[in-house]
Computed example of a mutant assay.
Amino acid sequence: MTTLAQDLSEAASVRTVTIPEATHYVHLDRPERRRGRLLAEVIRTLAQPAVAKAAH
C-alpha cells in the first residue's frame, strides 16, 4: 500500500484507508464484515470534485 501511494506521484491526491479485519473479498462480503465501510469510502472518494493537477 505504501509503495503504491508513493508511485501515484502524478495523482491530484492520494489517501489510504485501512479497514480492520477486512479480507481481499470485502467488496463481496456481508455488512457485518465491513463491506459497508468499503462502500462508504468509495462513495466518499467518488463524490469529491475532480481537481486538475497543474503541469510542471
Rank of each mutant, 00 (worst) to 15 (best):
L8V: 03
L4N: 07
M1H: 15
T16Q: 10
P31H: 03
H27V: 00
H27C: 00
A47D: 08
R33K: 14
P20A: 15
D29H: 04
A47C: 07
T16E: 07
E41S: 10
R34A: 12
R44W: 09
A47K: 05
E41I: 02
A5Y: 00
H24I: 06
L8H: 00
T2Y: 10
T2M: 10
L46I: 02
R44I: 05
L28I: 02
G36K: 07
R37S: 08
L46Y: 07
H24M: 03
T2G: 10
S13I: 06
V26A: 05
L8D: 01
T2C: 11
S13D: 13
V26S: 02
Q6W: 09
V26M: 04
L28V: 07
P31D: 05
D7H: 12
I43D: 14
H24D: 05
E41M: 02
V51I: 10
P31L: 00
T23W: 06
A5M: 06
D7I: 04
E10G: 14
V51H: 04
L38W: 01
V51K: 09
H27W: 01
L28G: 07
L8F: 01
A50S: 08
L39M: 12
P49A: 10
D29C: 03
L39D: 10
L46N: 03
V17P: 01
D7L: 14
R15H: 14
R34G: 13
I19K: 05
T2A: 15
A47V: 02
D29E: 11
T16I: 06
L39E: 14
R44K: 15
Q48V: 08
L38D: 05
T3E: 14
I43A: 14
S9W: 12
A12L: 05
A12V: 04
A40V: 01
K53Y: 00
I43L: 14
Q48P: 01
A54F: 03
R30W: 13
T3H: 12
D29W: 00
R37M: 09
P31W: 00
V42S: 01
R44L: 12
D29P: 01
R30Q: 15
G36I: 03
M1G: 13
A12R: 02
T18E: 10
A50W: 05
R44M: 09
L39Y: 11
L46M: 09
E21Y: 13
A5S: 06
A22I: 06
V17K: 05
R44C: 09
T18D: 08
A11Y: 02
I19M: 02
V51A: 01
S9R: 15
